[in-house]
């Protein structure tokens, strides 16, 4: 397999970019808290006005992970982002189980946690350049 050519990341940290990022994050969080978008399902459940905000914060986390998956300069970066995305989705499934009261959402969470762990191990083996049965 071809080796990744990364020199270990080249990102710089400037104050302007930091301010822009903080502003963007603040705007997004303000939208989530004060003008929460409607979800098209489960509208009339108890606690839904709280959990809708939770869902959108988790969507924000997933968007950050997806950014790293698309942008990541080396293959291991993408693998890490995929692993983290799996864990965030497990949390999402668990929160979904509370307002709806359906316990099988959390079964999806368990299955997803185990599957994502095995997937991460397989990706790690592949990146080491071994076969899966070594």
């Amino acid at each position: 397999m071809n080796k990744p050519a990364g020199n270990g990341g080249t990102e710089r940290h400037s104050t302007g970019a930091w301010l822009a990022g903080i502003a963007l994050l603040a705007v997004l969080l303000a939208v989530i808290f004060f003008r929460t978008p409607e979800v098209p399902f489960f509208q009339d459940l108890p606690h839904m006005d709280l959990f809708r905000r939770c869902f959108f914060i988790l969507f924000l986390c997933m968007a950050l992970c997806l950014y790293r998956i698309c942008r990541g300069p080396t293959p291991p970066d993408r693998a890490v982002a995929i692993d983290i995305l799996g864990i965030v989705i497990v949390g999402f499934c668990a929160i979904l189980a509370i307002p709806t009261g359906r316990s099988w959402y959390i079964d999806i969470g368990i299955a997803w946690a185990l599957q994502s762990f095995i997937g991460a191990l397989c990706l790690a083996k592949h990146l080491e350049g071994k076969r899966f049965d070594e």
Binding site: M1, K3, P4, G6, N7, G8, T74, P75, P76, A79, V80, D83, F117, A120, L121, L123, A124, K125, L127, E128, G129
Partner: peptide, 15 residues
């Protein structure tokens, strides 16, 4: 998983 990914990254040559 974190340990496996870090080791794989180091072996596959990420500086």
């Amino acid at each position: 998983a974190a340990h496996a990914l870090a080791r794989a990254a180091h072996i596959s040559g990420v500086k």
